[in-house]
Simulated scan of single mutants.
Amino acid sequence: MNWYLKVLENYANFSGRARRKEYWMFTLFHILILLALALTGVATESSVFIIICYLYILITLIPTLAVAVRRLHDIGKSGWFYLLRMIPLVGPILMLVWFCTDSEHGKNQWGDNPKGFGNDREISMIGRE
């Protein structure tokens, strides 16, 4: 749940990098919340829960896009590549492969590796503590 809240705290942060774990844990909780709202709406036959579900989607649209862009940054791709998702069949498969790809080691143009592996800054600090 902390990963989900971390993404919500970085509400509109499209810069930087996001680890696989951050992206997938956010996605897991996001889908679970959507399922709970939708199933509750269907079970109670209440349109209120369906409206709440749509409001939840609208509220979390920007954080969802932001974490996806940061995930693309983590593998060394521009956030504009997320637009490839609109290509039927090929786009979603390509996004799935990229979102499952390991982080680019070391620093890239969007910042240090969030895992800390391969960061020159970490290596240069050895022995200076």
Rank of each mutant, 00 (worst) to 15 (best):
L83N: 03
M86A: 12
L83I: 06
S124V: 14
Y4V: 09
I75C: 02
L61R: 08
G111A: 08
L72T: 08
F49S: 07
L89K: 02
N13V: 14
S47T: 12
F29T: 08
F117P: 01
I123R: 08
Q109V: 09
T60N: 13
V48E: 09
F14C: 05
I62M: 04
W80I: 13
T44V: 09
R121E: 07
K77P: 01
L35M: 15
L32G: 08
A36W: 09
N10A: 10
R19A: 14
M1V: 13
I31F: 12
N108Y: 04
K21C: 00
G127V: 05
V97W: 03
P88L: 02
R128H: 14
E45T: 09
V67Y: 00
Y82C: 09
C100E: 04
R121K: 15
T40Y: 07
G118I: 03
G16W: 08
L96W: 14
T40E: 10
N108W: 03
Y82G: 09
V42N: 13
V69P: 00
T101E: 04
A66I: 06
E22M: 09
C53K: 12
Y23D: 01
H30I: 07
H105S: 12
N119I: 01
R17K: 09
N113A: 01
R128N: 13
E45H: 13
W110V: 00
P114Q: 07
K21R: 13
N119T: 00
L55C: 14
K107W: 03
H30D: 12
D112Q: 09
F14E: 03
R17W: 02
M25R: 11
N2P: 09
I126V: 15
L58D: 07
K21P: 01
L55F: 12
L8P: 07
L65E: 07
H105E: 13
W3L: 08
L94H: 02
R70Q: 06
S103T: 15
F29C: 01
R70N: 05
W110E: 00
G127E: 04
I31D: 03
I57G: 11
E22F: 05
M95W: 03
I57T: 12
H105P: 12
L5F: 15
D120K: 10
L35A: 15
K21H: 03
G76D: 06
A18M: 05
G79Y: 02
I33E: 06
L37C: 06
G91E: 03
K107T: 12
N13H: 10
L35N: 15
I57E: 13
